[in-house]
Amino acid sequence: MIELHRVSKVYSVGPVKVPALSDVSFRVGKGEFVTLCGPSGAGKTTLLRLLYREEIPTEGEIEVLRQDVTALTRSQVAALRRSIGIVFQDAKLLPGRTVYENVAFVLRVLGTPRREITGRVFDALRAVGLSARAQAYPPQLSQGEAQRAALARAVARKPLLLIADEPTGNLDEGMAAEVIEIVRDIWAGGTTVLFATHQATLAAALKQRTLSLQNGRLLKDEG
């Protein structure tokens, strides 16, 4: 599903070179749940951005869904992303659209037939327990609800891989637990999950394979 071989990423800030990842290698098999753990600045977000080709590595090879992501054309990148669901710490919901419209928007832009959209949106909202809030606008949602809406948007497309970049970072313990439970359900449905968090306790509680990053290096791969 995912394979990284000696991947490094260095950002250039003017004449200064800032290493974000150094010599990272690992594999994630189909259907796995992998936690990516490390403090802020460890390189988690950079690593995830490399997977969906928002960034290109300075060195190394990356394969996602059997595709060399560094060699993809623009349209191939789009095709790859159609198989990946992405969730961010800040949910990234469109504030001028309702929860329903936020989820439907993604289906519409991907050309889902109109007659299928309503059913799929409500299936996704039911899966995250938000069907009662379908007509609410993002500013009316709690952070936990916003994150669940973002999850619904990610899974409505039935992705093969779910990339969650600190989805619980802004949530209190109760809301975080709800979000984790939903992610687990998605994983149980057969989706491969890569879950990034800076909370070591949360990573431990998930009791899944954990990749520990620090200063851009992969320190441990355990579980």
Binding site: A78, V106, L110
Partner: peptide, 17 residues
């Protein structure tokens, strides 16, 4: 910008964006 970012992240074809 937000819409376009979401469109690109979910893999919308460029002409749709």
């Amino acid at each position: 910008r937000d819409e376009m970012e979401i469109m690109r992240l979910v893999g919308a074809p460029e002409h749709v964006v």
